Computed example of a mutant assay.
Amino acid sequence: MKLSVPVSKQVIDPSLDVPTNNNHLHLHAPPKEKVVVVIGATGTGKSRLSIDLATRFPAEIINSDKMQAYRGLDITTNKITDEESCGVPHHLLGIIDPESDFSAASFRAMASVSLQSILSRGRLPIIAGGSNSFIEALIDANFRSKYDCCFLWVDVAMPVLDSFVSNRVDKMVERGMVDEVRDFFKPNADYTKGIRRAIGVPEFDLFFQVESFSDEETRARILAEAIDKIKMNNSKLARRQLEKIHRLRNMKGWKMHRLDATAVFRKRSAEAELAWEELVAGPGAAVVRRFLYNLEPVVFGGRKVLRHRVPLMAAASH
C-alpha cells in the first residue's frame, strides 16, 4: 500500500544520509505550499518525468497542455494512455468540449481549483505540459505569493529532437492518426478554434477534401505532403516553446533546473532507459527531494550528504 505523506510537512526521506548530531539544525515549517512545474519543448519527455516523479512522491499531475485538455483526438494530441499514467491521477486532461475555446484565463481558474484540491489531500501538485503561455499566465497571477515553485526543464538538442518528433509522427500515423482525424473532419471547419487548432488536424484538410474522388497516386502524394507538414509544424512548435522557456528564464528570472535528455534520445531500448534514470529521472527526483524537504548538499565525512537548510539568523544565534 502506498502511504501518502503531506508534502508541506518537514519530513526527512529515510533514504537520505542526514547527519543528526548537528546542533545548529532548526526545523521550520515552510511558509508556502510547494508546487513542482515541469516544462520543455514538445517531445522532450515532460509527461514521462512528471509520472516518474509522481510515483516517487505522493503527487498528482495537472495537465497544462492546451490541446490535451480537450476531449478526443487522443493519438493526434499525444495524450498519455492509462497504462502510461501508472495510476497517477491527472487533472485537466481530456475534459474540455472540443468545440469550445480553452483560454489561458480558463486554465488559470481551473488549475487553481485542482491545485487546492490536491494540496487539501496532503499531496504534491505537479504541473506539466507544453503550453508555456498557460503556465506563464498561472505563475504571473499572484501565484508566487501563495506557492513555492520548483521548475524542472527537460531539454533536448534541437537536431536530435527534430529526428525524434519526425519518428513520433510516423508512429502516430501507424496507430491510426489519419482515421482519428477523419472521423473528426468537417468541410469548411474553423481551424482557429477549439481542438481543431491542434497540429495534425488542419494539415489533413486537403487530403480529406479530395480523397473520395482522387486516384491512388494523388491520394498518396497529398497524404505524404500532409504528414511532412505535420512534422515541420511540430519542429516549429518546439522552437517556439524553447524560445519561450529562454525568455521566462532570462527575462522573467524563473530559476529552472535544466535536465539535459539529449543522450537519452541517442540511445535505444535498455540503454535509453538507464540513461533516462541517470540523466533525467534521478536528478529530477533529487531536485524535488531537496525542494520538498528543505535540504541542501554538504560535504560530511568526506562524502556529499543532505541536511536541512539552516536560516542565517538561527545559525548566527549560536
Rank of each mutant, 00 (worst) to 15 (best):
K2R: 08
L259Q: 11
V280A: 11
K252D: 05
H308C: 12
T77I: 00
E136P: 01
I39Q: 06
M67I: 01
D190Y: 08
S235N: 11
G282I: 09
E243M: 08
G45V: 11
Q116A: 03
L274D: 15
K252V: 01
A281S: 09
S120V: 07
C149L: 15
K32E: 07
V113P: 00
A141L: 04
M67G: 02
A272I: 08
I227P: 02
L115Q: 07
S50K: 13
S133M: 12
R219W: 07
F134K: 12
T76S: 00
V264Y: 09
A275L: 06
E296F: 07
D162L: 03
R239G: 01
G130I: 09
R144M: 15
V35S: 08
F102V: 03
R123W: 09
Y191D: 04
G87K: 02
K304T: 15
Q209G: 00
P187Q: 09
R247M: 09
E180W: 04
T81S: 05
L279K: 08
G301L: 10
N250T: 13
S117A: 09
T192N: 05
R247H: 11
L237R: 11
R121Y: 04
D228G: 05
I135H: 06
R144T: 11
K34S: 15
V165T: 12
G194L: 13
L115I: 03
G122P: 08
S212E: 15
N132S: 06
L242I: 01
D179Q: 06
V201E: 04
V298A: 14
I127G: 07
S4T: 11
C149F: 08
M158D: 13
H257L: 01
D13A: 11
R48T: 11
N22G: 10
M313R: 10
F204G: 13
D170G: 06
V36S: 10
N23D: 12
V298I: 05
R56P: 05
A104G: 07
I96Y: 00
L223I: 02
I227K: 05
L92C: 01
W276V: 03
A272M: 15
A198Q: 07
A198L: 06
K244V: 03
S114W: 03
F213E: 13
K66C: 02
F57L: 08
E60R: 11
L248F: 07
D162C: 07
Y147S: 13
R266S: 03
R197Y: 07
L312H: 10
R309Y: 10
Q241I: 09
P125V: 15
F57W: 03
R289F: 02
K9W: 13
A316C: 04
G43M: 08
R121C: 06
R48V: 12
A59R: 05
R182Q: 03
P58Y: 10
P125Y: 08
P30D: 14
F134R: 08
K66G: 02
I51T: 15
H28R: 09
L292F: 15
F184T: 06
S214F: 09
S269K: 13
N23Q: 14
P31L: 14
L115Y: 02
E180L: 04
Q209W: 01
A315N: 11
N233D: 09
V165Y: 00
L248C: 07
S163N: 06
F213D: 08
A281T: 05
M110L: 11
N167P: 01
